[in-house]
Amino acid sequence: MSDSTRERMLDAGLSMLLRHGYNDLGIQAVLKETGMPKGSFYHHFASKEDFALQVIDRYMDEVHNGLDGTLGDPSLPPLDRVRKFFEATRDKYRDDGYLGCMLGGLGQELSGVSPVFQEKIEACLSAIGTRIAACMEEAKAAGDLPPHADPVHMANLMLNCWEGAALRSRLWRDPAPLDSMLDFYFSAVVAAPKPPIDASAN
């Protein structure tokens, strides 16, 4: 069976996992959505779990494409590239009907009951954080962040704030929590003054 069959099922899985989550996603529903026979599913996927893990990989392909297109844009300063990535992600959430982040949704649903998904989702978020941290390292080298800044910590903090805002955005069906989070982060966190020197440490 061709890879196009697998691709069609993965494409269907992207929107279905966003809409329904893992527990409410049935194999039969995927087959109905794609018009594929059951044998096609099990030719490409060992189980529902395997299918969902491959859908996450497909989702991450899209995320990395977005990172490539924004963080790799040499026409913008590094911090503007970071913000542009999150703004593009916000716009995609809107186009998807404010269903939010698949990683965040599945993480909330499955992290307490499935070590497999817990590790998978954490690895995906860590990969995103690593790329954002590298761009923030560029900002630090350019003098756009203070010398004491920790790009890894700042990237992880941003992801944590973003996932919380994405949840509220999904609940409200509104981008306002995402916009407020970005405004706060780039004004209050990125531009935070250097902490005072502790004279007692000398």
Rank of each mutant, 00 (worst) to 15 (best):
residue 96 D to G: 01
residue 96 D to W: 08
residue 96 D to E: 15
residue 96 D to Q: 14
residue 96 D to I: 08
residue 96 D to S: 08
residue 97 G to S: 08
residue 97 G to K: 09
residue 97 G to E: 06
residue 97 G to D: 09
residue 97 G to Y: 04
residue 97 G to M: 05
residue 98 Y to A: 13
residue 98 Y to M: 15
residue 99 L to W: 03
residue 99 L to E: 14
residue 100 G to N: 05
residue 100 G to R: 01
residue 100 G to E: 06
residue 100 G to Q: 03
residue 101 C to F: 01
residue 101 C to Q: 01
residue 101 C to N: 06
residue 101 C to D: 03
residue 101 C to R: 01
residue 102 M to P: 09
residue 102 M to G: 09
residue 102 M to Y: 04
residue 102 M to S: 11
residue 103 L to T: 11
residue 103 L to E: 04
residue 104 G to I: 00
residue 104 G to R: 00
residue 104 G to D: 11
residue 105 G to A: 11
residue 105 G to C: 01
residue 105 G to V: 05
residue 105 G to Y: 04
residue 105 G to F: 05
residue 106 L to K: 03
residue 107 G to W: 03
residue 107 G to D: 10
residue 107 G to N: 10
residue 107 G to E: 07
residue 107 G to Y: 10
residue 107 G to F: 02
residue 108 Q to S: 02
residue 108 Q to C: 00
residue 108 Q to G: 02
residue 108 Q to T: 04
residue 108 Q to L: 13
residue 109 E to P: 06
residue 110 L to A: 12
residue 111 S to K: 11
residue 111 S to V: 00
residue 112 G to I: 02
residue 112 G to V: 11
residue 112 G to T: 14
residue 112 G to K: 13
residue 113 V to P: 01
residue 113 V to L: 02
residue 114 S to E: 07
residue 114 S to D: 15
residue 114 S to T: 13
residue 114 S to Q: 08
residue 115 P to E: 13
residue 115 P to D: 12
residue 115 P to G: 02
residue 116 V to F: 00
residue 116 V to K: 14
residue 116 V to A: 12
residue 117 F to C: 13
residue 117 F to A: 12
residue 118 Q to T: 04
residue 118 Q to I: 00
residue 118 Q to W: 05
residue 118 Q to M: 11
residue 118 Q to N: 10
residue 118 Q to F: 05
residue 118 Q to G: 10
residue 119 E to Q: 12
residue 119 E to G: 05
residue 120 K to P: 07
residue 120 K to Q: 15
residue 120 K to V: 03
residue 121 I to F: 04
residue 121 I to S: 03
residue 121 I to G: 09
residue 121 I to C: 03
residue 121 I to H: 05
residue 122 E to D: 11
residue 122 E to K: 14
residue 122 E to L: 06
residue 122 E to C: 01
residue 122 E to M: 01
residue 123 A to N: 10
residue 123 A to Q: 10
residue 123 A to S: 14
residue 124 C to R: 10
residue 124 C to F: 02
residue 124 C to S: 15
residue 124 C to N: 11
residue 125 L to G: 11
residue 125 L to S: 13
residue 125 L to R: 07
residue 127 A to D: 15
residue 127 A to E: 15
residue 127 A to T: 05
residue 127 A to P: 04
residue 128 I to W: 03
residue 128 I to R: 01
residue 128 I to S: 00
residue 128 I to Q: 08
residue 128 I to P: 07
residue 128 I to K: 02
residue 129 G to I: 05
residue 129 G to D: 09
residue 130 T to P: 00
residue 130 T to M: 06
residue 130 T to D: 10
residue 130 T to Q: 15
residue 130 T to L: 08
residue 131 R to P: 11
residue 131 R to A: 07
residue 132 I to C: 11
residue 133 A to N: 06
residue 133 A to V: 08
residue 133 A to C: 10
residue 133 A to S: 11
residue 135 C to R: 15
residue 135 C to T: 15
residue 135 C to H: 03
residue 135 C to V: 14
residue 135 C to K: 13
residue 136 M to K: 12
residue 136 M to Q: 13
residue 137 E to F: 01
residue 137 E to M: 02
residue 138 E to C: 10
residue 138 E to S: 12
residue 138 E to W: 12
residue 138 E to Q: 14
residue 138 E to G: 09
residue 139 A to P: 04
residue 139 A to E: 08
residue 139 A to G: 14
residue 139 A to V: 14
residue 140 K to M: 11
residue 140 K to E: 05
residue 140 K to W: 05
